[in-house]
C-alpha cells in the first residue's frame, strides 16, 4: 500500500470519528450547563422542596418554583403515556403480526409518517378538534356527568374534585394536552412493538401457535417471552419523549402558573421553561434553568432505567 493511501485512510477515518464524536459533545455541554445553572438557581430560589412545590416566581418575587407545572407535566404525561400505550401497543401487534394484510400495511405506512410528523401540527390538530367538540361534549356528556357526580358526592370531600378533574372543560385543558401527547406516543410505541414482533423467529412463532392453539393465545405467549422487553423499553423511552414535549402542549394545555383545575389551562414544566427563558426578568430565567434541571432529571431517570433494562437483558 502506498503511503498516500495510508495517510488518506488515517485522515478519513479520523474525520469520521471526529464528526461522530462531535455529534455527542453538545449533549454533555447541555447537561453540564443545565445542571450547573439549574442547581444554583434552585438553591437561590428557596431550596429543592420549595422549588418543587411553589408557584413560579413573578417578575418581582425572590423565590418560586415549578409546583403547578410539575403537577401538570406528571398528570398529562401519565395520561398521555397510558393512552399512547393502550392504543399504540395493539396497533403495533396488528402491524407486526398481520404483515400480509393490506390494511396492516397501510397502517404501517401511516404510522411511519405519523411518527415523524411535526409535533406542533399534532397540537394544532387537537386544538381544532377541541374547538369542534367542546360545546357538545360539555352539554351532552361532561355537564350531566359532573352534575350527577356532584349530586351523588354531596357534602363529601370529593365534591370539589369533580370540577377539578371531570369538567366541564375549557378550550384549553389538561386532557387536550394529554391527548396530543398520546398522539405523539402512539406511532412510536406501535413501530417498536411491530418491529419486535416482526423479529420474533419463525420457529418460535410456530411453536407458539402450536402450543397456544388459538391465535390470540399464541400472540400472547410470543409477546411474553420475547417482545415484552422491547416494548417496555419503548414505553419508557416514549414516556421520556412526551414528558419533555412542548410544541403539542402550546395550544392544548396552554400553560398555567397556578394550581388550577385540570379542566382548564394547565401548566407544564416544558411550557414554563419556554415561557420564562426569554423574559427579561432574571428571577424567571433562573427558574427556567431550575425547571430545566428538574425536567432533565425526569428524562434521565426514564432513559437510564430503559437502558439498564435493555442492557441487562
Amino acid at each position: 500500500m502506498t503511503s498516500t493511501r495510508k495517510v488518506l485512510n488515517w485522515i478519513g477515518m479520523g474525520l469520521f470519528v471526529l464528526l461522530g464524536v462531535a455529534a455527542t459533545i453538545p449533549l454533555f455541554l447541555i447537561i453540564i450547563d443545565i445542571y450547573s445553572k439549574g442547581i444554583d438557581a434552585i438553591n437561590r430560589l428557596g431550596g429543592l422542596w420549595h422549588f418543587l412545590t411553589s408557584e413560579p416566581p413573578s417578575p418581582l418575587s425572590k423565590s418560586g418554583g415549578v409546583g403547578p407545572p410539575l403537577i401538570g407535566t406528571l398528570y398529562m404525561t401519565a395520561l398521555g403515556a397510558i393512552g399512547g400505550f393502550a392504543l399504540g401497543f395493539p396497533l403495533g401487534v396488528y402491524i407486526g403480526e398481520m404483515r400480509r394484510e393490506k390494511l396492516a400495511n397501510a397502517a404501517r405506512v401511516g404510522v411511519n409518517v405519523l411518527v415523524e410528523f411535526p409535533t406542533i401540527t399534532i397540537g394544532l390538530f387537537v386544538y381544532a378538534v377541541m374547538g369542534l367538540v367542546q360545546d357538545d361534549l360539555n352539554r351532552y356528556i361532561l355537564g350531566p356527568v359532573s352534575a350527577t357526580l356532584k349530586a351523588a358526592l354531596g357534602n363529601s370531600v370529593f365534591y370539589n374534585y369533580v370540577s377539578w378533574f371531570v369538567g366541564p372543560l375549557d378550550s384549553f385543558n389538561a386532557y387536550a394536552g394529554a391527548a396530543a401527547l398520546a398522539l405523539v406516543m402512539i406511532p412510536y410505541v406501535a413501530l417498536i412493538t411491530a418491529s419486535a414482533y416482526a423479529s420474533v423467529a419463525q420457529p418460535l412463532r410456530e411453536a407458539a401457535y402450536g402450543i397456544g392453539g388459538r391465535e390470540f393465545n399464541a400472540l400472547f405467549i410470543v409477546m411474553r417471552k420475547v417482545v415484552s422487553r422491547a416494548v417496555l423499553t419503548a414505553a419508557l423511552i416514549g414516556t421520556a419523549k412526551i414528558a419533555g414535549e412542548t410544541a403539542p402542549l402550546l395550544f392544548t394545555a396552554f400553560g398555567n402558573n397556578y394550581y388550577a383545575p385540570f379542566t382548564g389551562s394547565t401548566g407544564a414544566v416544558s411550557l414554563w421553561i419556554y415561557a420564562a427563558s426569554e423574559t427579561p426578568y432574571n428571577v424567571q430565567i433562573m427558574s427556567a434553568y431550575g425547571a430545566a434541571a428538574v425536567l432533565l432529571t425526569i428524562i434521565l431517570i426514564l432513559f437510564i432505567s430503559a437502558r439498564i433494562k435493555a442492557i441487562h437483558d
Binding site: 449533549l27 443545565i34 412542548t246 410544541a247 419556554y274 434553568y289 428524562i299
Partner: peptide, 16 residues
Amino acid sequence: LVDLTATMPTVLFGLW
C-alpha cells in the same frame, strides 16, 4: 449517548 440526544426535550436544546 446518541439516542439520549434524540430523547432530550427540545425545549432544553432551545434554552441552551
